[in-house]
Computed example of a mutant assay.
Amino acid sequence: MGLFKKNPFGHILFLKLWLIRIMGAMTHRRFKGFNELKIEGSDVIRNLPDTNVLFVSNHQTYFADVVAMFHVFNASLSGRDDNIKNIGYLWRPKLNIYYVAAKETMKAGLLPKIMAYGGSVSIERTWREKGKEVNKQVKMSDVSNITTALNDGWVITFPQGTTKPWNPIRRGTAHIIKQNKPIVVPIVIDGFRRSFDKKGLRIKKRGILQSMEIKKPLDIDYENDTMAEIVEKIEYAIEQHPSFLKVIPREEIEKSEELNKEREWRY
């Protein structure tokens, strides 16, 4: 790798490499130490092509979700089976992993700006701005940037566009899928909301059993599936379809910020 080689977004890969190494070393104990991350599906990661892969996931914190995925993806590619033991996998990480994030979030402070260099594809929210509901038109440059990222590697997106559970899937995700025909890999996470604050920067509770389930790619007919059908497939895959509410007590949803005693590890 050339010292000043850049990715399609103009980021110097050598700097990105060391950023991932340093940030990875600093955050590892958040998922293997202070808390315990249970992983399923490492074999799925190892069988994916190098480019045009879209990960769709439910969302619980601004940053911790993505950081955990960077750990799990690179550990899996290094041959680890459902674990992130020994951070040696950070020495040669996959540098073409990107994640979709709100531009407003990634500009809010020095740390988010540093993390953005690690792989953010920052977009403008069309439905919310500065804490208020808005109705803006999608910027074609944002769509183009996601396509660029898919052509170069893997992209992580949180199609609900919020950390609040049970919110509807944004149709823009279905549009990206129809347009680019990526392999779509669903991920279901849990425990992050109980482990960290909303931003995912501060450890709120230790000893939590976190989980990340990487499912097999979705079966999508890119030509014939409608946008609504693709949205529904994603909702079921990331376990955010309204039908799941029928089997989850309302009290449990309303107390989603409280500690789930059945998943707590006590020291």
Rank of each mutant, 00 (worst) to 15 (best):
L3S: 11
F4L: 11
N7T: 02
H11Q: 13
I12Y: 08
I12M: 09
I12S: 08
F14Q: 03
L17D: 07
W18C: 14
I20L: 15
G24S: 09
G33S: 11
F34Y: 13
F34R: 10
F34P: 05
N35G: 05
E36A: 04
S42K: 03
D43A: 15
D43H: 15
I45G: 00
D50P: 00
V53M: 09
L54P: 07
F55A: 01
F55N: 01
V56F: 05
V67Y: 12
V67D: 06
F70H: 07
H71E: 02
V72S: 10
F73W: 08
N74P: 08
A75S: 12
L77A: 02
S78L: 05
K85P: 07
N86K: 13
I87A: 03
I87P: 08
Y89F: 13
R92Q: 05
R92P: 01
K94R: 14
I97Q: 10
V100E: 01
L110H: 11
L111A: 10
K113D: 11
M115W: 07
G118M: 09
V121D: 11
S122H: 09
S122A: 15
G131N: 04
K132I: 03
E133C: 02
V134S: 02
N135W: 06
M140T: 03
D152H: 08
V155R: 08
P159K: 01
P159G: 00
T162F: 05
T163E: 05
P165S: 02
W166E: 13
I169D: 01
R170M: 15
G172E: 07
G172L: 11
H175V: 13
I176N: 02
I177S: 01
K178W: 08
N180Q: 10
I189Y: 05
G191Y: 01
D197Y: 02
K198S: 14
K199N: 14
K199A: 15
G200D: 00
G200L: 02
K204D: 07
K204T: 09
I208N: 01
L209S: 08
Q210N: 11
Q210H: 08
M212E: 10
T226M: 00
A228P: 03
E229N: 12
V231A: 00
Y236H: 15
A237I: 03
A237K: 01
Q240A: 09
H241Y: 06
E251I: 06
E251Q: 12
I253P: 14
E257H: 15
N260T: 06
E262N: 12
E262Q: 13
R263N: 13
R263L: 14
W265K: 14
Y267A: 14
